[in-house]
Computed example of a mutant assay.
Amino acid sequence: MAEDFYCEEVLSGRTAVSKVLETENVLAYHHTRPFYPVHIVVIPKKHIASLLTLEPCDNDLLMEMMDVIKQTAAQVQAEHGACRVATNLGKYQDSKHLHFHVVYGEPLR
């Protein structure tokens, strides 16, 4: 997998995605290889390596991300009755670009 799939593939347009919600600085889309029946990824359009590398200057972007996550999670919960929101760090983070997963259901794999 690419070191930063989100910058190299998604944000560059090389990999087409099914958008759920988009703002000036944030994109939510259906995962290209879902691990759950409903699997939405929320990413900042600016490269940030992970939750741990956020800087104080990223606070407005983080709040915008949280708003997109909140709207996406509310939509999934309304449709399915529940959802999970998660981010991964370290060896659990395949792509080194901050991203959150909004998921519903049991793992497909």
Rank of each mutant, 00 (worst) to 15 (best):
R109P: 12
S12I: 01
E24S: 12
Y104E: 09
Y36E: 02
Y36T: 09
V76T: 05
H39L: 06
H99K: 11
V20Q: 11
A2W: 01
L61M: 11
L62W: 07
L108I: 13
T23A: 09
V10S: 01
K19R: 14
L11V: 01
N25Y: 03
I69A: 04
Y92P: 03
T53Q: 11
H99P: 02
P34H: 08
D58G: 08
T15D: 00
V26S: 03
L54N: 11
E24Q: 14
G105Q: 09
T15W: 00
A16N: 10
M63Y: 06
C83T: 01
H101K: 13
R33A: 11
S18I: 00
L21W: 08
A49G: 00
T72P: 02
M66C: 12
P44N: 11
A74L: 14
D4C: 15
N88E: 10
D94Q: 15
D94L: 14
E64P: 06
H47L: 10
R33E: 11
S50Q: 01
A74I: 00
Y92C: 11
V26I: 12
V26R: 10
E8V: 01
V76W: 00
P56M: 13
Q77E: 13
P34T: 07
C7A: 14
G81V: 04
K19C: 02
Y92M: 15
C57H: 10
V41K: 06
N25P: 02
D67Q: 14
R109K: 14
T72F: 01
E55F: 02
D58T: 03
V17R: 10
A16S: 12
M63H: 14
K96Q: 15
A82S: 15
L52W: 07
S18G: 00
I69C: 02
I40H: 00
A2C: 03
D94T: 15
V41I: 15
L51W: 07
A28Y: 00
H39C: 04
H30E: 13
Q71N: 08
Q77H: 11
A16G: 09
L89T: 14
L61D: 07
T53E: 13
H31E: 15
